[in-house]
Simulated scan of single mutants.
Amino acid sequence: MPSATLTLLAPEQWRAAEAAHAERMAVFTQPYRERRSAAKPHPVHDFLFTYYSLTPGQLERWHPGAGVVLLGAEAVAERGAWKHYRVIEDADGAGTPGVCADVEAFARDRASMVSFAGAILVGTAARPGNFACFGLHEWAMTYRSDVHGVRHAYLPLRLGAAGTDEVVEAHQIRCTHFDAFRFYSPEAVPLNQLKPTRETQRDLEQPGCLHANMDLYKWAYKLLPAVSSELVAECFELSWRVRAMDMQASPYDLADWGYEPIRIEEPEGKAAYVAAQRGFAEEAAELRARLLGELRTAGLLP
């Protein structure tokens, strides 16, 4: 039964959107597949595929989001059995069938995740940003590498092990992000002014954090198909650029990979880091607001 709150897309419309999304994401997914096949890892570009759980194929799959009906028998045949989709027998009032996201089923099945994601997104948006961390989380992960080694063993440290340790010891570290803090070396853990945990995550995340802003991609894809793939793609592309900057400011030497370092151990490098960090925070704030808007429109958040 048609509803004034639903947007109807004819087959030629949704097929075009589907193809455009797949093409947009293939710019990222196809090179990753080729690298994986050749066993040639990339220290920057692989992160969004190896750290986050969405597969390249899932990223390429297009979802219109809540309240959009894809018209036609082909849509029903292809998507009618997809999880959290439902078939509408008469979608346009003229007997044409269609499919759309089943938000009610999604809300039932994913209630705890939606609640947690909503708390993270709302809380992060409400807090002031910390723009004095200078990306030291990556340095804390490599602290005392002479004892523990480094996570990216095929990458040299730009300042060597001793020089990296000196940078860590010369700064106050105040990382708010649990999923960065949990990779600290054991000796670096007590150097952090905060002790983030999974339980305190919703109370600590703040909009200046590079990892919190990269995680917009995670929350967006976890909320598929209730949110749109267009928004997921925009969050992915922001995360892609944030990841590059995060690694440029890290202790690793990425010159052989074509990346100039952001030397956060020097005043000029700190200024460059903060400028980029603020720019990303502004972009992330807009995407976070849009993500919350889609959740509220779908009736998943008040």
Rank of each mutant, 00 (worst) to 15 (best):
A91T: 14
T164F: 01
A281Y: 01
A73C: 06
H63M: 10
L216Y: 02
A4R: 12
G57D: 15
E286L: 06
G67P: 04
T197E: 07
T297W: 01
Q13G: 02
A161L: 07
G163K: 11
A4N: 07
E234C: 05
P225G: 06
P31V: 08
H148F: 12
A276K: 11
C209Q: 05
A244Y: 10
A170N: 11
F28Y: 09
V44T: 12
L9C: 04
V76H: 00
Q172F: 10
N213K: 09
V189L: 14
Q193D: 11
A26M: 04
D165K: 11
P196Y: 02
G299D: 09
Y217R: 07
Y32M: 08
A75H: 05
D215Y: 08
G208E: 02
W14T: 04
H84R: 14
K218V: 12
L300C: 09
R296D: 09
V103N: 06
E104A: 15
I173C: 08
H152G: 00
M245K: 13
T200L: 12
G160R: 11
A298R: 02
S229I: 09
V227S: 11
Y52M: 07
P97W: 09
L216P: 03
F28C: 00
A105W: 04
A275I: 06
E34S: 05
G129Q: 05
G98A: 07
P251W: 12
K270C: 10
L159I: 03
D246M: 11
A119P: 01
R35W: 08
S37N: 00
A94M: 06
S228Y: 07
P31G: 04
R288S: 13
A22Y: 07
T176R: 11
R79K: 10
V189F: 05
G258V: 02
V150Y: 01
A81H: 14
D215G: 04
G258R: 06
R202Q: 15
A73V: 13
K40D: 09
L291E: 15
K83R: 14
A275R: 14
W219C: 08
F280V: 09
F49T: 04
L6K: 04
T96Q: 14
Y273L: 05
E205G: 00
A285S: 12
L155E: 05
P43L: 13
E60W: 03
R15P: 00
R86K: 14
D102E: 11
H84I: 05
G258L: 03
F106Q: 09
